[in-house]
Design a protein around this nucleic acid. Structure first.
Ligand SMILES: Nc1ncnc2c1ncn2[C@@H]1O[C@H](COP(=O)(O)OP(=O)(O)OP(=O)(O)O)[C@@H](O)[C@H]1O
Length: 829
DNA sequence: AGCATGAGTGTTTTT
DNA sequence: CACTCATGCT
């Protein structure tokens, strides 16, 4: 494709922006209006009009969008685009630092990530109580926020944690100690990487000239998410370099990192002689999708002045699905995607948008259960996972002998060595000269096994071949790592090691390898699928900014999540939550599915107090009719078998003894009993049980070493080692009775545990049209394998989200035999 | 003292 | 699942 073709694809405003004369510009435009496309065109235009490609620097937020831009320019221009650079702010700065280590005074410094930073803070903070001093995590966050916003600690505390203001002295001491230690050990944290460059340019004219003379144009994507520190980086360049920034204030979602969505508006005042252009027309989505998105913004107290119009016109109306719980939600999505594949649609046309990495797990499970290939972007990255860090610590030690964080990690790996011993060793190691001495020290230590020295030796031998270094040191460490993680999916973790080796293959420098992947995180599920591009994408909304997909599923748009309960009470954070959802909705091209849970098992116990606030602030509260097609799913929770034989021979009903009014004393006893039961089926329990059920259809808890199996009668037993913990019981229903009473038991599960208790938990829908109102209770009957009656109980039901719930807890310790059959049905007490 | 171990608990978002 | 805390072991 030629440049002319590319330009003719643009609309008038886009073309005007792309072909601008040399002048600072801000392109302010809504979602899907072609900002990225405009950046691509701008770069292509500049190159074909004589600017050498290497004199254009593009800054994007993630490596993915950066490389996509370069790829697209290359597609249009071919060879001519050679040398065009697109990077994240961090990779750009580190490349400057590496290019001129002397200029920035960081020769031989190694980059530490968030977790290392935290480790250091933990050590330096000491063991003070939380009431005395904020946790290391909090201090770390405050530190980073202060630096990203280029604010004093005092100002940061006032804004973020006023309650800690009285502690400012202590906090500042910890921070200063951190900076001192960082310097001593030659570490650069994420914020240093930017600040070193920014600060140096601010104070030194020579540096400013050296940097800015390398470029003619700086193109910045996602301008709305840049923070003051990043501005400090761009600002000194504007004398010699032309800025071309694109952004959308309604998509600013990185406030937690110091970005202020208003900032983009100050562009004009901060940059003299700049011009602001606007793009209005949305080319991504159908009007129906935009209507929903527009509505969301219109509900805000702030006025974003955004009303997107779809150039593609009309399409399918978005759907709003409500489920009983997250597993039904996940299962439905997986099913939907699966069915679409059957109809001939590619996996890759589906994207599931989640709020947190954690929220993606359920979806992952559901996709896994259906064998749907997927990639998961967001959450813990490969090189951040504990077992990989363990292995990497050996490499880091060899790469940088002063790396005390890595030493700590490595030394405490060995049995018998804890923090104290490790510290003593480290103190000596730091003063050693050369690796011969280090190896000798490790060998001589009576606390460490010989293999510790072997592991280090293995890396030293392979310093120029990272992949081999990994392999050899892993062989030494395998045993100990297997032991450490034996309860935490060691097999899976073991496979990760192979993936890391793959990543390392081309690398000849240990530190270079680590640095590259610290700044450019790789997600576990991404590596193995080079040839297989056709996969479903599960992605956090924050990572999804700038991407698009034909069919999007935005999950868990429930009260307490949108906005997140964290933000309640803080207007600006609620607004940011709104923008997060806005970003999610506007990713969809053709079809948008918003799903939510009518009842979240978690929301309830977390904070009953907040419940009101959560639902009051809920974004979809005042949803007008007509924006979405609304569908409520009242599916069975736990696979009640509809084809189970009807039970008609219930003599029991005839001899119903009814509700024996308990005397006051007993009533009290019963109440305390009920609360006991609540504990037993507490939310946590229900959470795990259903999660795993969703994944493999059976019942077990993953974090015990339990195995599960299903016997021929369809009864799942839970095993803990060889000891049975619980046994699942089959339930019989009486459909006739249910129809008659208008009370439908939607789900029910029953277990018999080692304390000889039968625990039953179920949900039902009591339809108002019930002709026989006296059905107000649920009856439970338990038989042993000889068919002898063991127990009969009655209970009322209580409101439970979209349904009513009931539960029983029957003590069968007086019986020799185990329960074999149980029946549950409505009764007129 | 120093370490291993298990139970308990609480989960934004990212370079 | 990852982190903290309490406990008990050496
Ligand atoms: N002039 C145009 N004609 C046809 N399609 C266009 C035009 N401009 C953009 N598009 C298409 O619209 C979609 C959105 O474009 P792009 O990703 O550049 O938008 P964006 O402004 O960066 O969106 P967001 O801010 O939501 O990330 C892309 O699929 C792109 O190909």
């Amino acid at each position: 494709m030629t440049i002319n073709q590319l330009l003719s694809d643009l609309n008038e405003n886009q073309r005007k922006a792309a072909c601008m004369p040399r002048q600072h510009a801000l392109i302010l435009a809504g979602a899907g209006t072609g900002k990225t496309k405009t950046i691509v065109s701008r770069a292509a235009y500049l190159i074909s009009n004589g600017t050498p490609a290497h004199r254009i620097q593009i800054l994007a937020f993630t490596r993915r969008s950066a490389s996509e831009i370069v790829e697209r320019v290359r597609m249009h221009l071919g060879e001519e685009a050679q040398g065009l650079k697109a990077s994240t702010f961090h990779t750009w700065c580190i490349s400057l630092i590496r290019k001129a280590p002397k200029v920035f005074g960081c020769k031989g410094y190694s980059v530490i990530d968030r977790d290392d930073q935290l480790q250091l803070y933990k050590v330096l903070r000491g063991k003070a109580q939380k009431s005395e001093l904020p946790s290391a995590q909090e201090i770390c966050d405050l530190y980073s926020f202060a630096r990203n916003t280029v604010q004093s600690l005092n100002a940061t505390l006032q804004k973020k944690s006023p309650e800690c203001l009285h502690n400012i002295k202590k906090i500042s001491e910890v921070m200063l100690a951190y900076e001192k230690r960082k310097k001593e050990r030659h570490y650069l944290d994420y914020d240093d990487i930017l600040d070193v460059v920014a600060q140096q340019m601010t104070v030194s004219e020579k540096t400013r000239i050296w940097v800015s003379s390398q470029y003619d144009h700086l193109l910045v994507d996602e301008m709305q998410d840049t923070n003051p520190l990043q501005w400090k980086l761009i600002n000194p360049l504007k004398e010699n370099v032309t800025l071309f920034c694109v952004g959308d204030d309604a998509q600013s979602i990185y406030g937690f990192r110091g970005a202020d969505f208003q900032n983009v508006h100050s562009f004009a005042s901060r940059v003299d002689n700049s011009i602001t252009l606007k793009l209005q027309d949305n080319y991504r989505s159908t009007q129906e999708i935009l209507n929903a998105s527009n509505w969301l913004l219109s509900q805000s107290a702030l006025s974003y002045g955004k009303n997107l119009t779809a150039m593609r016109g009309s399409g399918k109306k978005p759907e709003l699905h409500t489920f009983i719980n997250e597993w039904e939600e996940g299962r439905w999505i997986a099913e939907e995607i699966f069915n679409n594949k059957q109809m001939g649609e590619d996996w890759k046309n589906n994207m599931v948008l989640v709020r947190s990495g954690y929220a993606g797990r359920v979806i992952e499970g559901a996709l896994l259960a259906k064998d749907i290939p997927y990639q998961f972007i967001g959450g813990t990255k490969l090189l951040e996972s504990a077992h990989i860090r363990d292995l990497l610590s050996v490499l880091r030690i060899v790469g940088n002998q002063q790396d005390e964080i890595a030493w700590m990690r490595f030394l405490t790996l060995w049995n018998g060595v804890g923090e104290v011993t490790a510290n003593k060793l480290i103190e000596r190691i730091l003063f050693l000269d050369g690796y011969d001495q280090v190896i000798k020290l490790l060998k001589d230590s009576d606390k460490l096994p010989l293999s510790a020295a072997d592991a280090v030796g293995a890396v030293i031998k392979n310093q120029n071949n990272v992949s081999d270094a990994l392999l050899d040191s892993f062989q030494v460490l395998e045993e100990i790592l297997a032991e450490k993680y034996k309860k935490q999916e060691w097999d899976k973790r073991r496979r990760d090691i192979q993936l890391v080796r793959k990543l390392a293959e081309k690398h000849t420098s240990i530190l270079g390898f680590i640095e590259e992947y610290l700044l450019d995180p790789v997600h576990v599920t991404q590596i193995d699928r080079k040839e297989n591009d056709d996969v479903v994408t599960v992605i956090t909304i924050h990572s999804a900014k700038g991407t698009e997909c034909e069919r999007c599923y935005v999950i868990n748009v429930s009260p307490g999540s949108y906005p997140s309960s964290f933000s309640i009470g803080k207007e600006d954070e609620i607004e940011e939550e709104r923008r997060v959802l806005y970003v999610a909705l506007t990713r969809a091209k053709d079809e948008l599915f918003v799903t939510r849970r009518g009842y979240s098992l978690w929301a309830e116990d977390k904070s009953k107090v907040d419940d009101n606030a959560e639902s009051e602030n809920y974004f979809l509260n005042a949803l007008p009719e007509g924006l979405f097609n609304e569908i409520i799913h009242r599916h069975k929770l736990w696979n009640v078998d509809n084809d189970a034989p009807d039970v008609t021979e219930h003599v029991d009903v005839g001899i119903n003894i009814g509700n024996i009014p308990p005397d006051p004393q007993e009533e009290e006893a019963e109440e305390s009993n009920a609360s006991d039961w609540n504990h037993m089926v507490d939310n946590r329990e229900a959470f795990w049980l259903s999660e795993l059920r969703c994944a493999d259809g059976y019942l077990h808890r993953s974090n015990s070493q339990s195995k599960s199996h299903k016997d021929s009668a369809g009864i799942a037993e839970e095993l803990d080692g060889d000891k049975m913990v619980k046994k699942k019981l089959q339930i019989e229903r009486n459909k006739q009775m249910e129809n008659h009473s208008g009370i439908k038991i939607e789900s029910c599960s029953a277990y018999y545990d080692t304390k000889k208790n039968v625990c039953v938990f179920g949900e039902l829908i009591a339809e108002n049209k019930s002709p026989v109102n006296e059905y107000k209770e649920v009856q439970l009957v338990v038989y042993d394998s000889d068919g002898e009656l063991m127990a009969r109980e009655y209970t009322n039901w209580t409101e439970f989200g979209l349904m009513q719930s009931f539960d029983f807890n029957v003590d069968l310790s007086d019986f020799e035999m185990e329960p074999s059959r149980i029946k549950v049905y409505p009764t007129n007490g």
